[in-house]
């Protein structure tokens, strides 16, 4: 079996990897903002509840969380699982896990912004929502790009964890090709794919960081 067909087989799983990657970012980032706000809420029960959830999500393996999301509906409620649930559970598991990490990054970002910004906005008559969206949020984004980049890079590699739900992404294919060939070579090919993907991610994040560097 030629290297080219190995690459083709592994590439056929790349779409699924991209799907997990982009959908997770799309859902977990806004969710992370909401969770960060809830975590900073002055309403103690909400803040404590969210703190507890974040603690569990960060303190247990993502692999376990994926299993809980996937099989939970059956074991908890006896609901029969559909085939599509494999993908949905993967996306839900990834999104809530990453939302927990993003929430803490965003919270740190928000809290690092001088209180004077909020005070200036308040005196100028901005509503709380306006203050957050126009003043705090854009500054928070800029400040959190380096840690967010770390998470995004980790996510690229974490997509391979969806193998526990047998969702057929790139690394699952790589392992299957590897087994069929009785060789580890396909795994290294997959490694090259991940590396190139992350190279692109790094370049994109770098561009965004540069685009936001017009102010300090």
């Amino acid at each position: 079996m030629s290297l080219i067909s190995v690459i083709q087989q592994i590439a056929s799983g790349f779409g699924a990897t991209l799907l997990i990657f982009f959908c997770t970012l799309l859902f977990s980032m806004p969710l992370g903002v909401l969770v960060a706000l809830g975590r900073m809420s002055k309403f103690k029960p909400l803040s404590l509840l969210i703190q507890g959830i974040i603690s569990v999500l960060r303190g247990t393996p993502l692999m376990l969380q994926l299993i809980v999301v996937f099989y939970g509906p059956y074991y908890a409620f006896g609901i029969k699982l559909s085939t599509n649930w494999r993908l949905y559970a993967t996306l839900i598991g990834f999104s809530i896990n990453y939302a927990a990490y993003f929430a803490e990054i965003f919270r740190a970002g928000i809290q690092s912004i001088p209180v004077g910004q909020t005070e200036a906005a308040t005196v100028l008559g901005y509503t709380k929502v306006q203050t957050f969206l126009k003043i705090i949020f854009p500054q928070m984004i800029k400040r959190t790009i380096p840690p967010v980049t770390n998470e995004v890079i980790t996510l690229v590699k974490d997509t391979s964890l969806s193998f526990v739900l047998a969702y057929q992404e790139m690394f699952t294919y790589a392992k299957q090709v590897s087994a069929a060939m009785s060789s580890l070579m396909p795994l290294f090919v997959a490694g090259v794919f991940y590396y190139i993907f992350n190279l692109v991610v790094t370049i994109v994040m770098d561009r965004i960081e540069k685009a936001l560097s017009y102010y300090n």
């Binding site: 074991y75 699982l81 559909s82 494999r86 526990v164 739900l165 057929q168």
Partner: peptide, 19 residues
């Protein structure tokens, strides 16, 4: 026929839950 690859460690959960 639907050929559903599974994670062998989870075979019991897969068959119990009807996937």
């Amino acid at each position: 026929l639907v050929k559903q690859p599974i994670n062998w460690d989870n075979k019991d959960a897969e068959i119990d839950s009807g996937t």
